[in-house]
Design a protein around this nucleic acid. Structure first.
Lengths: 225, 225
DNA sequence: TGAAATAATTAGATAAGGCTAAATTTATAA
DNA sequence: TTATAAATTTAGCCTTATCTAATTATTTCA
């Protein structure tokens, strides 16, 4: 059918396409996949030949209608596994990513559906990322605003945090910053650092700009732009 | 580390070594792995270079002390997964083999240990095959006698059934032949076919010689040889 | 607008795991 | 014990996914 590696490329293209809604450049994909550019070029040719992507040399790549559901299926597997590992197998949310990243390519749809059933058809994974339904619908997912885009004084609810860095996740949970947590924005430094006061009462936490940009939120007060 | 394919070879050698306690021939391994002989030869060179097997050209192969625990770990994964799929994810015992065969290479030891814990450290998989402990101990496993070696009139308990053929497994469970079932041997035909009467009362079942040889049992009466 | 910088592709190599055909070793049996 | 049969290995090729080095497009900016 399709190798685990090819699935990973499709997943990456899906992700990067949503990040910057434009065709995905070879260089961006190479960086993200941690391979050299020629590797990406040759892979794009293969995926393009099999109609999973639309590839125009020197112009970047995008998923076709054949490629999208494959990416979504893998994403569904990944996020269900993450949910399952934390909820049923007592994994810490910081450590689920790697295990899910391997298993996502090897579980059957049946396996995915069974754990979804066991979990009560969850809508999001432990990091707040939306889980596509069995028929690969993602319409329920809301985008949210970037934490970095709020203003001092705003009260916001955390919707999503990035899932790949275990150390960051441990740091965030230690300071009470989890999906669902309500925080007040107490300071935004000129170099972009955001200081928060979580309602858990653990005291203020400062986050560098990069992190604040990758955390997705929902406004509770209306003062944000 | 070690590819999924290499792990499969080690698992196969472990199995074949126990079947016919002698060095495993290239041809036997090729047949079992469903590849051509030269493929086996080149793989044995690689595994031998890395000290997982002892390989003597033209003389067959056997696992080293480095290779055995790797095979056992994979077998542990496989059997725990089979148990987990049937007990927690409502799989039928006939369909667990293939899913487990893929996943066994991709779950971490942690994952295996967690599901073992959830299952209460089970001793056997759904087909009656013993599950190595976390420290890869298999001393608790008893060999049992082949069903085919009993005599008419014997009352025997089913210990293990072969796990790879879904159709056979469906047939066996439909007729009440499961690990733990007690059956009476009512006939042994000259061409090896064994007829059983399971205590479940579903009436007699006939099994061809090959199947009767691959089912492992324990005597309840003492009349068997 | 044209030269320099940047991005992307082509060319050619490598390692893993598989294959077929040919050569070689071991086993069998006359 | 020697000739044939069977088993095994060698040789050489293929595909996938990767790499480096060299070439070619595309941008950028003076």
């Amino acid at each position: 059918m399709l190798s685990a590696i090819m699935e990973d490329y499709l997943k990456a293209i899906y992700y990067l396409q949503n990040e910057a809604d434009d065709r995905v450049r070879t260089s961006v994909l190479a960086e993200y996949m941690d391979v050299e550019q020629p590797t990406v070029t040759s892979m794009m040719k293969k995926l393009s030949e099999r109609d999973f992507v639309l590839y125009e040399p020197y112009r970047g790549v995008e998923l076709t209608d054949t490629g999208v559901p494959i990416a979504l299926e893998i994403i569904r597997h990944h996020r269900l596994l993450e949910r399952y590992l934390t909820d049923h197998l007592e994994y810490d949310w910081a450590e689920v990513h790697d295990e899910a990243d391997r298993l996502e390519h090897h579980i059957s749809s049946k396996f995915a559906d069974r754990i979804a059933e066991q979990l009560g058809q969850p809508a999001v994974d432990p990091h707040g990322d939306p889980i596509p339904t069995a028929n690969l619908d993602v319409s329920g997912a809301k985008d949210g605003e970037r934490l970095a885009d709020h203003q001092v004084g705003d009260s916001v609810q955390i919707v999503r945090v990035p899932d790949t860095d275990p150390d960051l996740l441990r740091y965030l949970s230690k300071h009470g910053i989890l999906p669902g947590t309500v925080v007040d924005v107490v300071e935004i430094a000129p170099f972009g650092m955001v200081t928060l006061d979580p309602d858990s009462g653990d005291g203020p936490v400062a986050l560098p700009e990069e992190v604040a940009c990758s955390i997705s939120t929902q406004s509770l007060t209306q003062s944000s732009h």
